[in-house]
Design a binder for these strands. Structure first.
Length: 230
DNA sequence: GGCTGATCATGT
DNA sequence: ACATGATCAGCC
């Protein structure tokens, strides 16, 4: 009998979701894995998504592979984010795959990026590699929606990147484009190919890409919560 | 291959 | 030290 137990079903309200996430704060990944009866890998080299899946289990998200929000009924996306001892992000945050074709008529308002980021439950987790995986602790969660400034930043970057994609410039995009949102490879390896638009408007094959939030953006939203919240 | 979950590891 | 480009695993 343990006082803390994973949710077996998706929580029926945002408040219940947040409450469960708040209960996990301070526990180590080893403790949460043990209670849930999960084996813990020695590191994340071959289990990069393990922490995300552990938190999905604890919070009652329908696990894994659906192109929907993690809590579809609540319209909430779950993101675990590795942080250093100061609470600053150690990695960028994957948002969604970038559509490289069929983009006629797509706008920021109808974009997958905007939909995914409309409401996010951020769960910081200690991520320094010197800390054994089992000893890393879960931090206090943050239920977030972009404010007007954040949405504006995201929209500007998204529009710049999508313009380049539509105009056949995808292979000229690097991770340096975008102030808060970047486009980077998102694939099994560098040999994976997908269809895109070439410089002359012709179909080409290129590496699949994903949209990622840069650390300045996620760092600022975490800081706003943990430093400026009353 | 394309989607989910991300972090690794090398170059600068 | 750090961000970019590359990569890992499972499901369909």
């Amino acid at each position: 009998m343990h006082p803390l137990t994973p949710l077996l079903l998706p929580p029926s309200s945002e408040n219940l979701l947040l409450q469960q996430a708040q209960r996990l704060a301070g526990f180590s990944l080893g403790e949460l894995a043990a209670i849930a009866g999960l084996q813990i890998p020695k590191d994340l080299k071959r289990d990069k998504g393990w922490i995300g899946m552990l938190l999905e289990l604890w919070l009652g998200a329908s696990a894994g592979s659906k192109p929907e929000q993690d809590f579809a009924a609540l319209g909430v996306e779950l993101k675990t984010i590795p942080v250093d001892r100061q609470g600053k992000p150690l990695e960028t945050t994957f948002v969604c795959v970038a559509p490289l074709t069929g983009n006629t008529g797509v706008t920021w308002e109808t974009s997958h990026v905007r939909h995914k980021l409309k409401r996010v439950l951020w769960v910081p987790v200690e991520g320094e590699r010197q800390i054994p995986l089992a000893d890393r602790r879960v931090g206090a969660p943050l239920l977030w929606s972009p404010n007007d400034d954040e949405e504006h930043q995201l929209r500007l970057d998204w529009e710049e990147l999508m313009d380049m994609i539509v105009l056949g410039q995808v292979e000229r995009i690097t991770a340096r484009h975008g102030e808060v949102l970047q486009l980077r490879p998102k694939a099994a390896n560098s040999k994976a190919l997908t269809e895109a638009i070439g410089a002359q408007g012709e179909p080409i094959l290129t590496l699949p890409r994903g949209f990622y939030l840069k650390k300045n953006f996620t760092g600022a939203l975490l800081a706003r919560h943990f430093l400026l919240k009353t």
